[in-house]
Amino acid sequence: MSRFIGTGVALITPFKSDLSVDVEALERLVNFVIDGGVNYLVVLGTTAESATLTKQEKQLVKQVIKNAANGRVPLVLGVGGNNTYEIAEELKTTDLSGFEAILSVSPAYNKPTQEGIYQHFKVVAEASPLPIILYNVPGRTGSNMLPSTVVRLAKDFTNIIGIKEAAGDIVQAMRLIQQTPEGFLVISGDDMLTFPMIQLGGAGVISVIGQGIPREFSNMVTAALNNETEVARKLHFDVMNSIDYIFEEGNPAGIKALLSILNVCSASVRLPLVPASEVLTQKLSNFLATVTA
Rank of each mutant, 00 (worst) to 15 (best):
I102Y: 11
P107D: 07
A48F: 10
I177D: 05
L176F: 09
R72T: 14
S218C: 00
L130N: 07
G80T: 00
I177R: 04
G71S: 05
Y85N: 13
E126D: 01
L259F: 11
Q199G: 10
A167W: 10
L225G: 05
V9F: 08
T290L: 12
L280I: 01
V205G: 06
V239C: 07
Q114A: 09
I213Q: 08
T180R: 08
T93L: 13
S285Y: 10
Q178P: 01
V124H: 12
F217W: 09
I246C: 08
V269G: 08
F195Y: 14
I206H: 05
V151H: 01
L271F: 11
I209V: 14
E182H: 10
M1C: 15
P112E: 03
I160H: 14
V137G: 02
G183F: 05
T281C: 12
L146V: 11
T194V: 03
D169S: 12
A267C: 06
E182M: 11
P74R: 06
E89A: 14
S242I: 06
L259C: 15
D190L: 12
T222D: 14
L75D: 03
S266G: 13
L26A: 07
D238N: 15
N226W: 04
E49M: 10
M174L: 07
A101Y: 10
L60V: 11
R3D: 15
F157I: 03
G212A: 13
S218T: 15
P74N: 07
S148K: 14
P14H: 01
A69T: 05
V186S: 06
F287S: 11
A253Q: 02
L280V: 09
E89C: 05
V43P: 00
R3Q: 12
D18R: 01
V124P: 02
V38R: 01
V269W: 09
K122V: 03
I87R: 12
T281M: 14
N227G: 00
S50G: 07
S106Q: 07
D18V: 02
I246M: 04
T229Y: 14
L258D: 02
A108M: 13
A10N: 08
G204S: 05
G142F: 11
E89Y: 04
D22E: 00
P196R: 07
E228A: 05
K58I: 14
G210Y: 04
V231S: 09
V43R: 02
R72V: 12
S143F: 06
N227W: 00
S207D: 04
F121Q: 13
P138W: 11
V208I: 12
I209K: 07
K111N: 11
A108S: 15
E249C: 05
I246N: 00
R270T: 11
A88N: 06
E126F: 08
G71C: 10
Q119H: 12
V105L: 05
L259P: 13
I133Q: 09
T229H: 10
E27G: 03
V221T: 10
I187W: 01
G250R: 10
